[in-house]
Simulated assay, not measured.
Amino acid sequence: MPFKDALISLDDYRAEFMANARRIVAESQRPTVFGHALLIQAMVIEQLCWLLRFLPENSVSNDYTELHQGNVSRDQQALVNAATYYLDVHYNEDLTLGTVAASLHVSAAYLSRTFKAIQGETPISYLTRLRMQRAKQLLMQEAITVRQVAHAVGYQDPYYFSKVFKRYFGAAPTLIER
């Protein structure tokens, strides 16, 4: 790539990576051969594995996996980053700790314990804070009902949403000024 510094250094595995890339190109020219799609998928996964193997050591990814505590591993930080990203994207869905943990292929207890150790709050408190901030924005900016806001931020029950909102902000959602 035309960068001053390489984003990912493959070190001694550069030859294997490039050889596999050539195999992918060659295989893509034979779409009618039995097992073509499966073989392409396997080779692409192999390429991703080569990339991921070296990703944690480059300076770009270090920006995202900066360790907050000396006793936190990169894997734990990556898990919390993935959980935070997942919650940021899916906050408006009906989520539980179990569904978030399952999507990240870890146990709910491990996710909760690791998230709290690094972020200082549980994944559910992070989700609630995210939902409440978004709900307040919606109530202040748009002329929609409390029921619509509740659904927009992932609460199925508008009464429960109102109760959480009041506990979080000290005022009912109907009292937020536009």
Score class of each variant (00 low, 15 high):
V25R: 09
L97H: 00
C49S: 09
A19I: 03
Y85T: 15
F3A: 15
I176T: 13
Y110H: 06
Y160Q: 11
I45E: 12
A21Y: 01
E142G: 07
L48E: 13
L97K: 01
Q76I: 01
Q148M: 11
N92G: 13
D11V: 09
R53S: 06
S9M: 08
S9Q: 06
D63W: 10
V80W: 01
A171E: 14
V149N: 05
S107D: 01
H36V: 07
V149W: 00
I45F: 04
R134K: 07
A83V: 06
R14G: 09
R53I: 08
L10I: 12
A26R: 14
Y168T: 11
S59D: 07
E93K: 05
F115P: 05
P2G: 14
A172D: 12
F169D: 00
K166S: 13
T174K: 12
M132N: 02
T96W: 01
E66F: 10
A15Y: 03
S162G: 05
D88K: 04
A108I: 00
A42Y: 01
S28G: 01
H36D: 07
V44P: 06
S103I: 11
G35Y: 02
M140W: 01
E16C: 03
A150K: 04
T174L: 09
S28A: 13
G98R: 09
D12R: 10
A117N: 07
L79K: 00
S59Y: 06
M1F: 05
T114H: 00
P2M: 10
D94R: 04
A143D: 11
R23Q: 14
A78V: 09
A101Y: 02
A109L: 10
L52E: 14
Q41D: 13
A101C: 05
M140E: 12
Q77E: 15
G170M: 02
A135Y: 04
Y85H: 10
T84A: 08
R53T: 14
L67N: 03
S162Q: 06
T32E: 15
E16P: 05
Q41Y: 10
Q156G: 12
F3R: 15
Q141L: 14
K116H: 06
G98I: 04
Q29G: 08
A172R: 05
G170I: 01
K166E: 15
N81P: 02
E46I: 04
H151F: 12
T145W: 02
D11G: 07
H36M: 10
N58V: 11
A171F: 11
S107T: 02
D157P: 08
